[in-house]
Amino acid sequence: MPTSKHRAVFEVNGKAVDIEVESRTTLSDCLRHQLRLTGTHVGCEHGVCGACTIIIDGAAVRSCLTLAVQADGSQITTVEGISFDEGLTPLQTAFRKHHALQCGFCTPGMLMTAHALLTENPDVDEEGIRHVLSGNICRCTGYIPIIQAVLEARAAYKKPENA
């Protein structure tokens, strides 16, 4: 059976991308293998584990449940795009401080979900964080340190009072 090839033009982490993608290629595979942005991980390929979470046009989505061709015209952020060249962001610093990662495989998805959530709602409470992060599976930490880290990172996402 045939597939089709399509031009896809989008932005990843602020950089323009203009590529040809196969119709059946998922966005996660496109990012990882075509664009070599391997920070986005793939843990189940059927939309349950959340490891492949990225941000498209401001919204956290599962990149394994999106076709690469569907990304045409959008702005994408991956874990590489929320990281500094040196050192850690406040969210990453909080993850490290609270030991919110062990093997680190689910971590990019956790960070992207938390980043999207805190950007939308820096005042979210513990229950709200647990609710949102319940779409990301971690097998190592038992989640408790992750919740602590996200709670602590809220401060960095709050807009200055007098701005």
Binding site: R24, E45, H46, R62, L65, L67, V69, Q70
Partner: peptide, 26 residues
């Protein structure tokens, strides 16, 4: 038809369906 794809994509991933054409409603 595919829109959000949140139900269809897992079905395709398990190859439980194998349509010859996906029509994106985007």
């Amino acid at each position: 038809a595919i829109s959000g794809g949140q139900s269809l994509m897992p079905i395709l991933a398990f190859r439980l369906a194998s349509p010859s054409l996906l029509v994106d409603l985007k």
